[in-house]
Design a protein around this nucleic acid. Structure first.
Length: 277
DNA sequence: AGCTCTTCCTGAAAGC
DNA sequence: TGCTTTCAGGAAGAGC
C-alpha cells in the first residue's frame, strides 16, 4: 500500500535521521527477504549512509565506504514499513531486517513486512542501474508535460492500468490512480492514446498536484501504514473516491461512486469521468 | 503490445 | 462463541 507519497515521506524522515550515520550492524531475520546480493550483506557493516532517495515506491539507502558505494533497495510491497526504534509495532515477529546505527539521530531502522510482498536488494552501482532500468519508468513528479503527453499517445492501454504500470510511470498505485483520474475527470478505462491534448495536459497537472498534496499531508494512512516516526498521514481525509463506493459523487452530479473489480478495484463516477476530454 | 490469470503471504473479515 | 474459509492486493511471470 505505500505508494509514491508514502515512500517519499519515509525517504525524507530517514534522510533527516540516518544520513551521515554509520551502520554498525545489519541483522537479517530471514534470508529469503533478500532478493539480490545476499552475499554482500557483511559489506554494509561499517559503511556510512551517504544518501537516501526514492525510486518509484522504493526507498534506496546509499552506503559508502572508502573503497566505494553500495545500495540497499527496500521495496515495501503492500504491507512493508520502515520504522524507527521509538515506534511500537504490532507484530514484531515480522521485523525482517534491522540496521543498527551510530552517529545518527535514530539508533536503528527496522524493515517490517508481514505479508512479505516486498523484498530487499543489496546492489552495487551497476546492479542498481540495471535494477532501475528494468523496473522503473519515469517519475511522475519529474516528468515534463510534453514527455508525459507523448507517453500517453504512444500507449494503447487503459489509463488506469498505464498509470499503475511501474515500468512506464513509477510510483502510482491503486489509491492515487483512482484519486487522480477522478479529479482529472477521466474514466479509468479510457484509452491513453486517444486522449485529447487538453485531457493529457490536465492529467499531468492533476497527477503532480495530487501527489504533492499527499506528500504535504504525510501520505495516506489506510490499513496499518505509518511513517518511520510513527505518524499517520492525513491525505486519507482528502480521498474522494477510493473506498467510497455507494456514496454520492463529491461533484454533486447526482450519481454515485461505483466500484468495479477487475484487476484492482476501480472507484469512479460514471457520470463525471469521461473517455476523452 | 497489452490483457488476464496465477503465485506469493498473512491478518482481517465474513461465513457457518 | 469459535473455528474455517475467503479475500485483499503490488509485482512478476506465463500464456494468449
Amino acid at each position: 500500500m505505500p505508494e509514491l507519497p508514502e515512500a517519499e515521506v519515509a525517504v525524507r524522515q530517514i534522510r533527516a535521521r540516518l544520513a551521515g550515520g554509520r551502520i554498525a550492524t545489519i541483522a537479517v531475520g530471514r534470508m529469503d527477504i533478500i532478493r539480490e546480493g545476499a552475499d554482500s550483506l557483511e559489506w554494509y557493516s561499517g559503511s556510512v549512509v551517504s544518501g537516501v532517495v526514492r525510486y518509484g515506491k522504493s526507498v534506496v539507502l546509499e552506503c559508502r565506504k572508502p573503497g566505494g558505494s553500495r545500495y540497499l533497495v527496500a521495496e515495501l510491497g503492500m504491507t512493508g514499513l520502515l520504522v524507527f526504534p521509538s515506534v511500537q509495532i504490532r507484530f514484531p515477529q515480522h521485523v525482517h531486517v534491522t540496521l543498527e546505527c551510530e552517529g545518527a539521530t535514530a539508533a536503528s531502522l527496522r524493515y517490517w513486512n508481514p505479508r512479505r510482498f516486498g523484498r530487499l536488494s543489496l546492489l552495487d552501482r551497476e546492479g542498481l542501474d540495471r535494477y532501475r532500468a528494468r523496473r522503473f519508468g519515469c517519475d511522475p513528479l519529474q516528468v515534463k508535460c510534453e514527455d508525459f503527453c507523448e507517453l500517453l499517445r504512444s500507449k494503447r492501454r487503459r489509463l488506469k492500468a498505464l498509470l499503475m504500470h511501474q515500468q512506464t510511470i513509477a510510483g502510482i498505485g491503486n489509491i492515487y490512480a483512482n484519486e487522480i483520474l477522478f479529479r482529472a475527470k477521466l474514466h479509468p478505462n479510457a484509452m491513453a492514446s486517444r486522449l485529447t491534448d487538453a485531457a493529457a495536459t490536465r492529467l499531468h497537472q492533476v497527477m503532480q498536484s495530487v501527489l504533492e498534496h499527499a506528500i504535504e499531508c504525510g501520505g495516506s494512512s489506510v490499513k496499518d501504514f505509518f511513517a518511520p516516526d510513527g505518524t499517520h498521514g492525513q491525505y486519507k481525509q482528502h480521498h474522494l473516491v477510493y473506498r467510497k463506493e455507494g456514496l454520492s459523487c463529491p461533484n454533486h452530479c447526482g450519481s454515485m461512486i461505483r466500484r468495479v473489480q477487475s484487476e484492482r478495484s476501480s472507484f469512479y463516477c460514471g457520470k463525471c469521468q469521461t473517455n476523452k476530454r
